[in-house]
Simulated assay, not measured.
Amino acid sequence: MSRLSKSSRRSLLSTVSIAALALCAGLPAAHAADSDNITIMVGGINKIIYLPAKLTEALGYFKDEGLKVELQSQPAGVDAENQLIAGAVQGVVGFYDHTIDLQAKGKEIEAIAVFCKVPGEVELVSSKAAAAGFKTMADAKGKTLGVTGLGSSTEFLTRYLVDKQGIASKDYSLLPVGAGNSFIAGMKQDRIQAGMTTDPTVAQMLKTGDAKVLVDMRTEAGTQAALGGLYPAASLYVRNEWAASHKPQAAKLAHAFGRTMAYISTHSAEQIAELMPKDYYGSDKALYVEALKASLPMFTKDGAMPAGGPETVLKVLSAYKPNVKSAHIDLGKTYSNAYLANK
Rank of each mutant, 00 (worst) to 15 (best):
R10T: 02
V16Y: 09
A19H: 14
A20E: 10
A20Y: 05
L23W: 12
C24K: 12
G26Y: 12
A33I: 15
A33Y: 14
D34L: 12
S35T: 11
G44W: 03
I48G: 02
I49A: 15
K54F: 04
L55F: 09
F62W: 06
E70G: 05
L71A: 09
A76Y: 01
D79S: 13
A88D: 15
V89H: 05
G91I: 09
G91H: 05
V92S: 09
T99A: 07
Q103I: 06
G106E: 11
K107A: 08
E108Q: 15
A111H: 00
I112S: 02
A113E: 02
A113V: 07
A113K: 01
V118R: 00
G120P: 01
G120T: 04
E123H: 08
E123N: 07
K128V: 10
K135Q: 08
M137V: 08
K141N: 10
L145Q: 03
S152V: 05
S152C: 13
T158C: 12
Y160A: 04
S169L: 12
D171Q: 11
L174E: 02
V177N: 00
I184S: 02
I184D: 00
I184M: 03
A185T: 05
M187K: 00
K188N: 15
D190W: 00
T198F: 03
A203W: 05
Q204F: 01
M205N: 02
D216L: 05
E220M: 05
G229P: 09
P232C: 06
R239Y: 07
W242E: 01
P248W: 07
L253Q: 02
A254R: 00
A254E: 05
R259M: 15
R259E: 14
Y263N: 08
I264A: 00
S265L: 06
S265V: 07
S265G: 12
S268M: 08
A273Q: 11
E274D: 15
M276K: 08
S283K: 11
K285Y: 03
L287M: 14
A291D: 02
A294Q: 14
M298V: 00
F299S: 03
G308F: 12
G309V: 03
S318A: 13
Y320F: 15
Y320S: 13
N337Q: 09
Y339D: 06
A341H: 13
K343G: 15
